[in-house]
Design a protein around this nucleic acid. Structure first.
Lengths: 182, 182
DNA sequence: GAGCGGAGTGTACGGACGTACGCTTCGGGG
DNA sequence: CCCCGAAGCGTACGTCCGTACACTCCGCTC
C-alpha cells in the first residue's frame, strides 16, 4: 500500500472530459470510450477509477453544481445593499443566459436527470438550498424563494429566445418581485 | 394507389408509445425496438412510418408542446379579469408542479434537446410565443414576458423541492410581478 | 381469375456499447 | 538483488442498437 505512483489528477481530468462531452453530445452521448479518448486515458482506466457510468455522471454534476453555486454566492456576497444585490442578480441572469451555452446545457441535462432519479434530485435540492440561503442574505425567505424561481425562469427563457430580452426587462422583474410589501 | 388498407391510427399510437417511453426512461432510453414493443407494432413498422429516430422524437415533442399550450390557452381564455387570470396562472403552476411528474419530465427532456439542437429550439420558441400571446390577453407585453418566465421558474422549483411551497407563495409572486407600475 | 403494385413486415448485418478480467509494470521491503 | 503486491491497462465477450432490404399479403384492374 501507499506505493505513491497513483495519479490523483487522473480522476479530475476524466470528470472534466465528461462535462465537456455532455456539453457537446448530451448525457446520452457519454460513453466510457468517448470519455477515455477525450481525457487521453486508456479505456481500462474508466472502470478502474469509477464503478460505472453512474458514478461518473454523479460526480460530474456534483462538481458542476458546486461551481455554479460558488459563483452565485460570490456575487451575492459582494453586494452590501439590497440594490446591489438586485444588480448582482441581474448580472447572474444575463451571465447564465448569455452567449455561453455551456452552463445552460449542463443545467438542463442535470434537471432532466433530477426529474426522474432521486440521487440527482438531491443534487438540485442542495443547489437550490444554497442559492436561497445566499439570497436570504439580502431578502426575506419568502422573497428569496420567489426570486430564486424568477432567476431560473428568466435565465431559461432568455437563453431560448431568438432575440434575448433586454436587461431592462430583467431589472424590472427583479424590482417587482423584491418590492417591499404594502 | 388508394388501396385503403392503411392504418392511420398506427402513427398516432407509435407517438403515444414514444411519449410514454420518454417519461419512463428518458429520450436516451428510446429505441425503435422498445417503442415498437410498447405500441404493439412490428419493428419494421418503425422505419416504414418514420424516417428515423429524429422524426419520431420531433413529432412526439410537437404533439406534447401543442397539448400543453392548449391547456394554457384554455385556462387563460376562460378568465375575464386580470384577477381571474392571476388565479388561472396559479392553477397552472400548481398543476404543472403537482404530483403528476409526466409533464415535468417531458418538458425537461424537450428543453435539454432544445439547448443543443435548433429544430427543437424552434418548438420551444413557438410554445413560448403562444404562451406569451395568451398572457397578453390580460397583461401588457413586458409583464407577460416576465410572468411567463416566473411561471417557468416556479413550476420547476416547486416540482424539485422536498416540500413544495404553498399556494400563497405562488399567488404572492404572481401578484408582485403583475402589479401595476408606479 | 390472373397478376400487378403498393402496404406492411421479418430478419440479418455491422457497429458501438459496458464491463469483467487476466496481464504488465514498478516501487519498496527483505 | 529478488520478489510481492498494488496500480493500472488491453482486450474480448455478450448485448443491444439502427437500418436496409427482400419478402409476403391483398385489393384492385382488366
Amino acid at each position: 500500500m501507499a506505493t505513491g505512483h497513483t495519479d490523483p489528477e487522473r480522476r479530475d481530468r476524466i470528470i472534466d472530459a465528461v462535462l465537456d462531452l455532455i456539453v457537446d453530445e448530451g448525457v446520452a452521448g457519454v460513453s466510457h470510450r468517448k470519455v477515455a479518448a477525450r481525457a487521453g486515458v486508456p479505456l481500462g482506466s474508466m472502470t478502474y477509477h469509477f464503478s460505472g457510468m453512474d458514478e461518473l455522471l454523479h460526480e460530474a454534476f456534483t462538481r458542476f453544481s458546486g461551481t455554479i453555486v460558488a459563483v452565485f454566492e460570490e456575487r451575492l456576497g459582494a453586494a452590501t445593499t439590497p440594490d446591489e444585490a438586485r444588480e448582482a442578480v441581474a448580472d447572474l441572469v444575463h451571465h447564465l443566459s448569455g452567449g455561453n451555452q455551456r452552463e445552460l446545457i449542463l443545467t438542463h441535462e442535470l434537471y432532466t436527470l433530477a426529474a426522474r432519479r432521486p440521487a440527482y434530485r438531491e443534487l438540485t435540492r442542495t443547489w437550490m438550498g444554497r442559492s436561497r440561503r445566499a439570497l436570504e442574505w439580502h431578502f426575506d425567505p419568502a422573497t428569496a424563494r420567489q426570486l430564486d424561481a424568477l432567476i431560473e425562469g428568466l435565465s431559461i427563457h432568455r437563453a431560448l429566445e431568438t432575440e434575448p430580452h433586454e436587461r431592462a426587462l430583467t431589472v424590472e422583474a427583479i424590482a417587482r418581485i423584491t418590492a417591499p410589501r404594502p
